[in-house]
């Protein structure tokens, strides 16, 4: 389909499906860094969970990857292509390869569920046919397939504002998967949901990404959920990475380092 980009420079020793972040800094206000020298490599598939206290720049990091937030310095290589240097059309084409799931779902409330899914294809459809809702047949067919998978087929032509939180996030995930992304980013996908729904959403993401071999990077404040679903945990504190390893290596002392204090661990 929209297969590998043959023109991208693939650096030696790197998997084609890879995200490499080098020396990434972000300052919203000059001289006040939110992210400090982030170095990170995500290759292959599976879920990587970023944990850390609020305000430590997890969300900024995720948003820097698809440039919803402009990085101040550094490189973000997706399949060997530096996203930081891209502008205009090239940036939009890069964004098509990065799926994103949002904390507050960010569905277009007044559009139907199926239209929200098709939003994932907007990078591929020209404005005029998109305005007339003339999407390619295979896109529409795939949207219905995905709706079936996430169990919302009967809601296809209902407006997104009629759905519950969990249902909305399912649509959000399906929309991201519609992009056929090379990587899936999720910014606190479960924070607005109850515990049971949260687990279901994490399962759904794992399943959909797993079947398609898409790596997932998820920002999560719930350490238990992160441990349960991720194969790799990244702990952030004060704008830097302080832990990087598999979940079973994450000990209380790491959590103390990440979140500070210890009473909450009891």
């Amino acid at each position: 389909m929209h297969g590998l980009r043959t023109d991208t420079k693939v650096e030696s020793g790197q998997n084609a499906r890879s995200l490499v972040i080098r020396h990434l800094d972000k300052e919203y206000v000059r001289g006040v860094p939110v992210l400090r020298d982030i170095n990170l490599e995500i290759a292959g598939q599976g879920m990587t969970a970023i944990i850390g206290p609020s305000g430590t720049g997890k969300s900024t990091l995720i948003r820097c990857i698809n440039r919803l937030v402009e990085p101040t310095r550094g490189e973000i290589l997706l399949d060997g292509q530096d996203l930081v240097k891209l502008h205009g059309k090239a940036l939009r084409e890069a964004r098509r390869r990065v799926g994103m799931v949002f904390q507050e779902f960010n569905l277009v409330e007044r559009l139907t569920v199926i239209e929200n899914l098709l939003c994932g294809r907007l990078g591929y459809v020209h404005p005029f046919p998109a305005w007339l809702r003339r999407f390619p047949e295979q896109d529409v067919a795939r949207a219905f397939e995905l709706l079936e998978v996430v169990g919302l087929k009967e809601f296809a032509i209902q407006r997104a504002d009629a759905l519950s939180g969990g249902q909305r996030q399912r649509v959000g995930i399906a929309r991201a998967v519609m992009q056929e992304p090379r990587i899936l980013l999720a910014d606190e996908p479960t924070s607005s949901l109850d515990p049971k729904t949260s687990v279901e959403i994490m399962e759904l993401m794992t399943q959909l990404a797993g079947e398609r071999g898409i790596p997932v990077v998820v920002n999560i404040h719930d350490v238990h959920l992160g441990r349960r679903f991720a194969q790799r945990i990244i702990g952030m504190s004060g704008g830097g990475i302080v832990f990087d390893g598999p979940p079973d290596e994450l000990r209380d002392e790491h959590l103390k380092l990440i979140y500070g204090g210890e009473n909450w661990l009891q």
Binding site: T112, I114, E137, V140, A141, A143, F144, E154, A156, I157
Partner: peptide, 11 residues
Amino acid sequence: MIASQEQWVRF
């Protein structure tokens, strides 16, 4: 509800 899943129309 939807006659054919391949054919989706807005209204």
